[in-house]
Design a binder for these strands. Structure first.
Lengths: 232, 232
DNA sequence: CGCTATGTTGATCCATATCAATAAGTGTGG
DNA sequence: CCACACTTATTGATATGGATCAACATAGCG
């Protein structure tokens, strides 16, 4: 892969502390590819030959079963995805598709496993990352099982707001269709849920969200650090 | 802790390959406790001071929010739980309660992290275990989001059957109340779901499950290796 | 042997899905 | 640059899965 990407990747938690030689070893075997929007990069069930790193663009992780489909996560730069499959040398559990034009780095899974065994810092970083991913999914499960769709939407908006600096107005930056799927509801139901939050001072116009009364929305949403905080 | 437990713990994937000295270091700092049934061992939000290993009995991992509660997993001997919190030195995301009399080993989290940094085999084992846990939760998410409650029950029964050797008759070994919560439904709804599977040759009498027509049930449940297989 | 928790069943209610129609974007090729 | 096609978003009407409420049965358990 072109060396110009090295610094960006090197900055990821995953690669920051590892030895130079080991980092170079990973980089040597890997390459970068550009993809147009709406390309299915990965189909669930495929063997996990590469650890993916998204350098630019956005990728949707989703899953299908029996004709149904659900969106599970969105991956943004700069981060890796399907680390767990790579580690276990097991088939992907999720499919991945580009949402926009994407530049993606591919590191052969066997290289990742090999360097893991040689580099304690890298090993530490992988464990930390995996534990974080695990906890994120558990939080998502709690969100799904303990909250109604209206509550999920309310808390989603609060999380998004925080991620964007906390201002009263911010962008949705997601197709509503996909957001609905991510939140575990139909597009129609999301439309209605949006209206359902009006009494709490929420307005969504196109993709622009306005939260008029922060306290009121929070009183309804009851965000919890053990479900909604990104860190920890 | 009494040395009599060492061999059992040593056999866990997590500890099997690590160096003897490191293993002993972990064991020295840890201890074993007995708990009566229905004791809340851990409350979500607590700091993760110990890695728990269940030696006998059964433990329920669950979560509460806003007056609601949901069961997320059952831990059986011999295995660890809340590894991710230990690794990240972060608060527990789930509460834990004993379901029966339990014997549980407690290893100080800081010892786990310290040995992790010294022992490559242990590090490897932790990563493998975490990756496995992560994948299990993703599978659970897919189950929840892609299936109706009837389909979830059907597939749950098929998984349970497989785990118990594949015979047509086996035990539920779980309170229906908790099973309902685990499957994301109310007890009443589980009762009805059980009836709803009768047309597919399923009978549940007390805690005894009988599957009369395996093929018929599978045709309805459509189990998937990417959701229902324990391994991988 | 009764007490309490669990499980079942029925009646009803509610959240959410589905179906259908329309509106509003968005992109494409002429 | 516009017209057309196509996808996405919204809204309304209706259906349905699942929750809730209530009553009763049952089974552990002290």
């Amino acid at each position: 892969m072109p060396e110009s990407h090295y610094p960006d990747i090197r900055e990821l938690h995953l690669f920051r502390e590892m030895e130079h030689d080991h980092f170079m070893e990973l980089m040597r075997g890997s390459y970068v590819q550009n993809f147009p929007p709406q390309i299915e990069l990965i189909e669930e069930g495929d063997p996990s030959d590469f650890l993916h790193i998204i350098l630019s663009g956005k990728v949707d992780l989703f899953s299908r079963w029996n004709g149904r489909e659900t969106s599970i996560a969105t991956v943004r730069p700069i981060s890796t995805f399907i680390l767990a499959a790579t580690i276990r040398d097991a088939p992907y559990l999720m499919s991945a598709r580009t949402l926009e034009k994407c530049r993606i780095a591919l590191i052969p899974s066997q290289d990742v496993r090999a360097v893991f065994d040689k580099d304690a810092h890298f090993a530490r970083a992988i464990v930390t990352e995996l534990a974080q991913c695990y906890r994120a999914v558990i939080k998502n499960t709690k969100d799904l099982k303990l909250r109604t769709s209206l509550e999920r939407l309310a808390n989603y908006l609060l999380r998004l707001q925080k991620r964007n600096g906390g201002a009263g107005t911010f962008e949705l930056e997601t197709e509503k269709r996909r957001l609905a799927s991510f939140l575990g509801m139909t597009p129609e139901n999301l439309s209605r849920a949006i209206k359902g939050l009006q009494p709490y001072g929420v307005k969504i116009d196109g993709s622009t969200v306005t939260i008029r009364d922060q306290a009121d929305l929070e009183r309804f949403a009851k965000p919890s650090r053990l479900i909604d905080d990104f860190a920890a």
